[in-house]
């Protein structure tokens, strides 16, 4: 943002001040993530930068903690990663199915009590997690699903659907309903119309909602802490225990992997968002 040459000095100063503030905030947002990287290669057992690391001594760096993460004895990360992925994948599928159906109904102009129903469907996103955790725990304990994968998957479907509902309704808001009418008038049945016409058009919204649901489940710890037994431990639960009890750099190695994963997800989500915006732009 170049300033025009006639700008008065005081606005010039203000402008640089504004740029400085913005730089600081961006730094504040992103810098903490980059502390994790170098420390995860620490050769020592402490979570601080050693003297060697500050001097960039190659001996001060090692893959020790990554090795520990994968091959360490009695280490919980393998099981946790397996559980996390299984739970997140099933929770995502469930959220996508229930959420997309609901979004299709909600964006019909015939839908009665739209506002109220939307408010109920979004509520798991708004209600504090600790309350959701307590309520879901009581329910799962009653029906005998506490400390099972099924229970956790169901809990994560509850937490994941709001995201799918929001993203899919947003995609459908730019959706031209005359194309489905055209399909029906040409003799297609509703299921066929949905699979061949509607779904391909709203797919970016569905996938980005699914990504949100996946990340929500993959990152969720409060509800799992209530529901999980030893067998159902997940990556966030292990990190939580690790951060509370034995602070070991292995956690940082795991954290680095998670940052890489979230970068991949971010890139996918961004590409989808742009594609969706382009498609909607054409429709208008």
């Amino acid at each position: 943002m170049a300033l025009p040459s006639y700008t008065e000095t005081r606005y010039r100063i203000w402008h640089y001040f504004y740029i400085a503030i913005c730089t600081f905030v961006f730094f504040f947002l992103i810098a903490p993530l980059f502390v994790i990287f170098p420390l995860s290669f620490n050769a020592e057992e402490f979570l601080v930068f050693s003297e060697g690391m500050k001097k960039l001594d190659p001996d001060a760096f090692s893959f020790r903690w990554y090795h520990e993460m994968v091959y360490g004895t009695k280490n919980p990360w393998g099981l946790a990663a397996k559980n996390s992925f299984i739970i997140a994948i099933f929770a995502t599928i469930g959220s996508i199915i229930l959420g997309t159906l609901a979004a299709l109904g909600l964006s019909s102009r015939h839908m009665p009590y739209k506002g109220l129903i939307m408010a109920v469907l979004i509520s798991p996103m708004i209600v504090p997690l600790i309350i959701s955790g307590v309520a879901i725990f009581f329910f799962m304990a009653k029906v005998g699903l506490a400390a099972t994968h099924t229970g956790i998957v169901l809990a994560h479907i509850i937490l994941g659907t709001p995201f799918v509902v929001i993203t899919v309704t947003a995609t459908l808001s730019g959706f031209d309903h005359s194309v489905t009418r055209a399909a029906s008038s040409l003799g297609s049945n509703p299921v066929n119309t949905f699979m061949k016409i509607t779904l391909p058009l709203i797919l970016p919204g569905v996938i980005s909602g699914g990504l949100f649901a996946f990340v929500t489940s993959f990152d969720e710890v409060v509800v799992v802490l209530f529901l999980a037994g030893l067998e159902n431990t997940t990556i966030p639960v292990q990190m939580w225990t690790g951060l509370r009890e034995q602070l070991s750099p292995t956690i940082l190695a795991v954290a680095t992997c998670l940052i890489v994963l979230s970068t991949l997800i971010l890139v996918t989500a961004e590409l989808l968002r742009r594609r969706s915006e382009r498609l909607r732009g054409i429709n208008r």
Partner: peptide, 29 residues
């Protein structure tokens, strides 16, 4: 620049909390 906003948004809450624990400790950065 939007990445600076979105990357933390997509990153695990525990990872972000862990990095603050490292930054803010007495011998921290």
């Amino acid at each position: 620049l939007m990445i600076c906003v979105l990357l933390p948004f997509w990153t695990s809450l525990l990872v972000r909390t862990a990095s603050w624990m490292i930054l803010l400790q007495t011998q921290g950065v």
